[in-house]
């Protein structure tokens, strides 16, 4: 799979790399890819025996980021657009890195209130901010790199 320079250089041609406790996979930008990302995260979470709550929140945050790229990303990206997800198992949960090549978008600065509460728009961002801890954003060579952690001990988001 052809990838931009900011993408992880995996050893496998399919864009998949696995190092103990870390998994990286690269995807295109399509509805099928968004679904494939979720399926992959589910499998990794099961393999690592990540608790159900943490796994759910990892899947949700990544799904929202991926859906945002699909909906709003620059469709004229030179390399056709790619998303790469890195999942790293840490002592208290999971570290996630989400990389996309579809135009600068700093979600740490974007406003959630772009629409009235009952109108679509901003819900995904709101959910990422509700669940993702240590959320950070960096733009690198036209790619967006978002990092966050999901604690396997986090009991405080929302009212649950």
């Amino acid at each position: 799979m052809k990838r931009g320079p900011c993408f992880p250089q995996g050893r496998c041609e399919s864009g998949y790399t696995e190092v103990r406790g870390t998994e990286i996979r690269t995807f295109g930008v399509s509805e099928g890819d968004v679904t494939a990302i979720d399926d992959w995260i589910e499998r990794v979470a099961e393999k690592w025996a990540i608790n159900q709550r943490a796994a759910f929140r990892v899947r949700l945050c990544v799904a929202e980021l991926a859906a945002n790229v699909l909906e709003h990303g620059n469709k004229n990206a030179v390399d056709g657009g790619h998303m790469a997800v890195t999942i790293r198992k840490v002592a208290d949960g999971v570290e996630v890195e989400f990389l996309d090549s579809l135009g600068a978008f700093d979600l740490t600065r974007a406003s959630e209130t772009v629409a009235p509460r009952s109108e679509p728009g901003g819900w995904g961002l709101k959910l990422v901010r509700a669940y993702a801890k240590e959320l950070s954003y960096v733009e690198e060579g036209g790619c967006n790199r978002v990092r966050f952690t999901i604690s396997s001990r986090d009991e405080t988001a929302g009212s649950a």
């Binding site: 159900q52 819900w123 709101k126 959910l127 649950a160």
Partner: peptide, 16 residues
């Protein structure tokens, strides 16, 4: 389920 319900709460759409 509680995880799904929590998501609904966090979108602020409980009334609707």
């Amino acid at each position: 389920n509680p995880l799904v319900a929590d998501v609904l709460v966090n979108t602020g759409l409980g009334e609707l």
